[in-house]
Write a protein that binds this DNA or RNA. Structure first.
Length: 214
DNA sequence: TATGCGATATTCT
DNA sequence: GAATATCGCATAG
């Protein structure tokens, strides 16, 4: 049963996973390094309906100067948060249907970030399933649009400091992270071929075609 | 399993 | 007016 994701639901005596908030000083400054670092860490959402959280198993780096990054043509009302100091949320809406959640990187006033593409659900699994409509556990937050939907992340989360106590924050890895693999990014039309996507090899919650999950 | 397409809203040219 | 850091369903193999 290697495809079974261990969650807090398997430990009824400890209803919520024990989580330690990440300090900003722990986050690598460089975008690609941050994208790799975030694999295995936890994204936590505090909401009136309850807490949801999940292990980050897939990310993509959009470093300074990358033509597929939203900050490539300079600051706009939409990408403003991308210029915040590392460890803030940049959330935007695309395709008329999906929100995308990013973690800002680099120094303040440098526009760059890391797209969070998939989570392995940890806490609040019932709530995630409710928001997404019933489905397999490993599909609840598999893909960036699904991740945002499962965690109730929308434009109100844009600009939140993920290293502070609040509605959205980052926590340290709850257990040892598996092997990290690297590949090209998904769904972009420029800068194709640059290996700036990271994922935990073997996790059933990683998105994309089979060849990008090996 | 893999590929293709429409839906949908916001942003930028 | 065009493009888009997607999703889910449809269809073919």
């Amino acid at each position: 049963m290697s495809n079974v994701i261990p969650t807090s639901a398997d430990r009824p005596d400890d209803r919520l996973t024990r989580l330690r908030r990440l300090r900003r000083a722990e986050l690598p400054l460089a975008t690609v390094a941050l994208a790799r670092y975030l694999i295995g860490k936890v994204l936590v959402r505090e909401h009136a309906d309850g807490r949801t959280s999940g292990r980050i198993v897939e990310t993509e780096a959009y470093p300074p100067g990358d033509a597929s990054g939203h900050a490539f043509r300079g600051p706009t009302p939409r990408n403003r948060a991308l210029y915040l100091e590392r460890g803030h949320a940049y959330v935007y809406f695309v395709y008329g249907s999906s929100y995308m959640c990013n973690v800002t990187s680099e120094s303040a006033r440098v526009g760059a970030g890391v797209l969070l593409r998939a989570l392995e659900p940890l806490d609040g699994i019932d709530l995630m399933a409710l928001r997404r409509g019933a489905g397999r556990l490993c599909d609840l937050a598999r893909g960036p649009g699904r991740l945002a939907a499962a965690m109730a992340i929308d434009r109100r989360c844009d600009g939140i400091d993920l290293c502070a106590a609040g509605d959205l924050w980052l926590a340290a890895a709850p257990w040892a992270t598996g092997p990290i693999a690297r590949s090209v990014r998904i769904g972009i039309t420029s800068e194709i071929g640059r290996p700036r996507r990271f994922y935990e090899r073997g996790s059933p919650a990683v998105s994309g075609p089979r060849r990008l999950r090996a």
